[in-house]
Write a protein that binds this DNA or RNA. Structure first.
Lengths: 328, 328
DNA sequence: CTGAAAGCGCTTACAG
DNA sequence: CTGAAAGCGCTTACAG
């Protein structure tokens, strides 16, 4: 482990017989004009001693953390995994590490204070309470959500995605369509409903109804099962997200409606789990990686208080599996 | 955003008409004996100015990062979500933030250097190449794996878990048992096989066979399907992990063996996805949260180079669902 | 009870 | 081409 007293710039300088400032310049690979021999001595000694720059000291001096934070509500949603992957790649290109956290076990306020303390150059916020954001010093950006009164966010083109789902169902001949929504405070669900409704309205004779959901499998299951039991006529269902879609599959089974023979189901968002359910779930793939990457790019290029309201629209596309088919 | 020039201790000190050192002591809530009136003035001014301590400066001064890192191979495996959750809670209790990262997009060596630079007080390593670990300055601990030549790790009681799975199948009357293994380099798979074999051996007349897997659904599917096609007689299958188990379900369907009527399947590890497949998958729940939490505890209590080889054994337990039943 | 000083490990003008 | 100085924002002995 060799956690024995870290080697500092001063150690290298002493060993090489030069000043620390010269070591710093040489090792950082700056504009330095040094004798080849001196440079060699410095580089050799640095390697010999196993010198590693101290990021903390560098940060303090330069007021640059070399790190970005990503706040998510929890790690068990595959949607976040994709956002994280995109953000990590973009951060790497920037030479910054990505540090993702969900603040489980912390008091919200304390936790935000701990994050907002110079440790990161910017914060991507994909979850957590928006109230605390206002007081943040560090530049932040909402990803995959917008919030009234917050003028910095990147979202996906939820309307387009819902529209794709509807058009797929319409092409298969479905006319009685239902949308399983999300929780009250999810702006994504509102936009998806808007896209759903608009796409249905474009088809004469087609009807749109919204079923109350909460973005969970249990919610989706109950929503469709209840609706069918109450006599709702529906052959095409668009689920607001993946868990809902899986729930819808179960709900339809509960009430004896075979999928895709008597009803088709499409969910917004794609992830591996869609392959594992039965029938394999048709989805609309969303550019989540691209969203995460774009978030980091904006954080690195925008002024800290520059407003931004961006929509990442591509690539969005239907992933055809077994839960959709022609109308019976 | 107010990203305008951060407020420092010096600003508060000036406003309160005292020295920075006093402000530091008061705000840190140390042993300080101060006039109530002075303390009040300091506290008021700090709030008034919106002072937030700079974690970087504090770190540099105290050589304590107040953060722990967790390295995982990727975020899309639900097993890691549970480890992360446990680690975050434990870190919070310690007043430290947890920063999780997978290094996607980085060159391994560069990335380890970026992590090993004073940013964290310790590193929990649940993935990534072990070779780089040797050169690390920061104290680290392997979680959920062991590695030859590395004497710091916490693992789960994989043998016990496999044993539980086997005993469940034996109780149901199954005697021809198969284990779907993991990749060559997964020590967890070796331990699970050992536990499987020992438990089967304890039952006279029972037979154990190992099928080659790779911890993926595709691997599990191919393994059982091939085995059955080749004429292997098996009614009880233990899958080395969750994806394998889901694959086994599909493989059995491929070759027309109904589950649980003609074969039972149990997977090691439990997560929400087990509820979503058909039939719902019986699993052995592993203490992953506890593992993550224990990792952080050890990192905070152990000397940096103190060896540790710990097994987190509880709670391990069967989660009975629909993929197991009495022998036909 | 409070202040002045030193120093954590760097980087960046500024001299020479 | 190289060195000496200042300073990033803190904390912690040490004085008084």
């Amino acid at each position: 482990m060799g956690a024995t007293s870290r080697v500092t710039l001063a150690d290298v300088a002493r060993a090489a017989g030069v000043d620390v400032s010269l070591v710093s310049r040489v090792l950082r690979g700056h504009d330095v004009k040094v004798l080849d021999e001196t440079r060699q001595r410095i580089v050799d000694q640095a390697r010999e001693l196993g010198y590693r720059p101290n990021a903390i000291a560098r940060s303090l001096r330069s007021s640059k953390a070399g790190a970005f934070g990503l706040v998510i509500p929890n790690f068990s949603n595959p949607v976040y995994a994709q956002i994280i992957a995109g953000a990590e790649s973009a951060a790497a290109r920037n030479g910054s590490v990505m540090m993702t956290t969900s603040g489980e076990g912390w008091d919200r306020a304390e936790w935000y204070a701990a994050l907002d303390s110079g440790r990161v150059d910017g914060l991507l916020v994909a979850g957590g309470s928006p109230v605390e954001l206002r007081n943040l010093r560090v530049p932040y950006l909402l990803v995959n959500r917008s919030e009234p009164g917050i003028d910095r966010f990147v979202v996906l083109d939820d309307e387009k995605a819902a529209g794709e789902a509807v058009r797929h169902l319409l092409e298969l001949g479905h006319r009685d369509l239902a949308f399983v929504g999300g929780p009250e405070d999810a702006d994504t669900a509102r936009r998806r409903w808007a896209g759903f409704e608009a796409a249905v309205a474009a088809q004469p004779g087609a009807t749109a109804v919204q079923l109350p959901g909460d973005y969970t499998a249990a919610g989706g299951r109950a929503a469709v099962a209840d609706a069918v039991r109450r006599g709702l006529r529906v052959t095409g269902v668009v689920a607001g997200n993946l868990p809902s879609g899986i729930g819808v599959l179960e709900g339809l089974r509960d009430v004896g409606v075979p999928v895709p023979h008597e009803a088709s189901v499409v969910a917004i968002h794609d992830a591996e789990i869609a392959e594992y359910v039965l029938p394999r779930l048709t989805t609309v793939r969303m550019p989540l990686r691209e969203l995460g990457a774009r978030g980091i790019e904006l954080l690195t290029t925008l002024a800290p208080d520059e407003p931004v309201a961006e929509v990442v629209a591509d690539p969005i596309g239907l992933v055809l599996r077994d839960s959709t088919g022609p109308v019976a």
